[in-house]
Amino acid sequence: MTPGIADSAEQIGDILRAHDGLEGPLLPVLHAVQAAFGYIPGDALPVIAQHLNISRAEVHGVIGFYHDFREEPAGRHVLKLCRAEACQAMGADRVAAHARDALGIGWHQTTPDGAVTLEPVFCLGLCACAPAALVDGRVVGRVDEARVDALIAEVRL
């Protein structure tokens, strides 16, 4: 399943070349690497740094600055629950507490079976049908405890 180091180096090289010519390509590159691998593998850093002619520390600093970029693989499914104000007004804190209990994990953690990673998100633009969630990129509105249970059951299948 996991690509070998040589394969991944080749894949990262392809991604880098596909972004040649862009002005300020680092974020698109990191997004593409994460889309390909599910995270930014440590051995990608020197390759990216060399190709873009920046220091490895700079790449590392950028990865660390943004909430989206991971340096470890996530679970097979990622459940993002909105924690921002409009969702709070509709019980998001209660729903999040329920999700943490049901999954037995905290924010930014992955269930021991590797099925679900739970992440906070600050506004999905679904504030008029709050609380809102994003499940593997799919939007869900009016999330309550029962909905959380159903979503968890669905991704665990």
Partner: peptide
């Protein structure tokens, strides 16, 4: 026009942080 996507940092809505981010830097 080129579409660019941020990476989950509220402060990147601030215009100068946004520009840094577009340039591929930390969104400071």
């Amino acid at each position: 026009i080129e579409l660019r996507i941020g990476a989950g940092a509220y402060v990147c809505g601030e215009e100068t942080a946004l520009l840094n981010s577009l340039e591929g830097k930390r969104g400071v």
